[in-house]
Design a protein around this nucleic acid. Sequence first.
DNA 1: ACAACGTACAACCGTCTGGTTGTATGTTGG
DNA 2: CCAACATACAACCAGACGGTTGTACGTTGT
Lengths: 138, 138
Amino acid sequence: MTEADEDRADALFHALADRTRRDIMRRVLAGEYSVSALAASYDMSFAAVQKHVAVLERAGLLIKRRSGREQLASGDVAAVRSVASLLIELEQVWRGRIARIDELIAFEPEERGNHQHRDQEGLTCPSPTSSVTSTPGH
Amino acid sequence: MTEADEDRADALFHALADRTRRDIMRRVLAGEYSVSALAASYDMSFAAVQKHVAVLERAGLLIKRRSGREQLASGDVAAVRSVASLLIELEQVWRGRIARIDELIAFEPEERGNHQHRDQEGLTCPSPTSSVTSTPGH
DNA sequence: ACAACGTACAACCGTCTGGTTGTATGTTGG
DNA sequence: CCAACATACAACCAGACGGTTGTACGTTGT
């Protein structure tokens, strides 16, 4: 279970860890592109671009749809969001650390007050539909 | 300019594309850990863990602080957020595509209505403070 | 003082990655 | 039908990656 999740996270982050692939994602999120149309945009062989598309497809970031002899690729925004949710998990861990520090200074209300950790308004949206969040208790 | 941004994005995604490094991030976001304390958690050599920490540090995801003979590592949540902001940029591209489609169906108000693209409530928070803080590099 | 600890770094090794070229297969238009 | 196009895939290569071991150096506690 967690094992497969880690595999998927590996694939997702690795797929995005290449500027050509990120650029491909920008294009296919904006609209459908055939593989050769994508390949025409880059200074490398068709096969190289094809491999990049395959990496993105294996990671689930991109879907291909056959149309005649062309293969039209388009980006899957849900997969992009799933990556973001992984980052939000990380941030939640950090939030727990801050909550613990707050508890400490609540019990020791003395001395040097340069804690500066109060939130900074991050990426976690406080909207009611944030079911991803396991809010650490205060 | 954009060149350096892409370099940084490469480093960030690559740093997160390894389960050991993601696990290290979970720990150092929760609190400070010496390198050897981290190394004790994994079934690999000290040097291997040290390299993972170095990768995270080079990507700016982690900061080391000397304390005597120990090197205490702690995670930088701002860097994690900067990765999330990269994903939000991607999602914005997709949002543009949807807006374009909406325009089309507005001008052609006929038949087949299985568009189903209406939002799904994603990760972009519509809060007024969505500046998301892209961290300036080291 | 010195042994034990914490860290850094170099060298090495098998594997994966990002690129190439070449070849094969399916699709389309004239 | 057949030439041109779009795709797929295998083989190959240099370099990066993740791991190892070994060595060196500063810090600490007794």
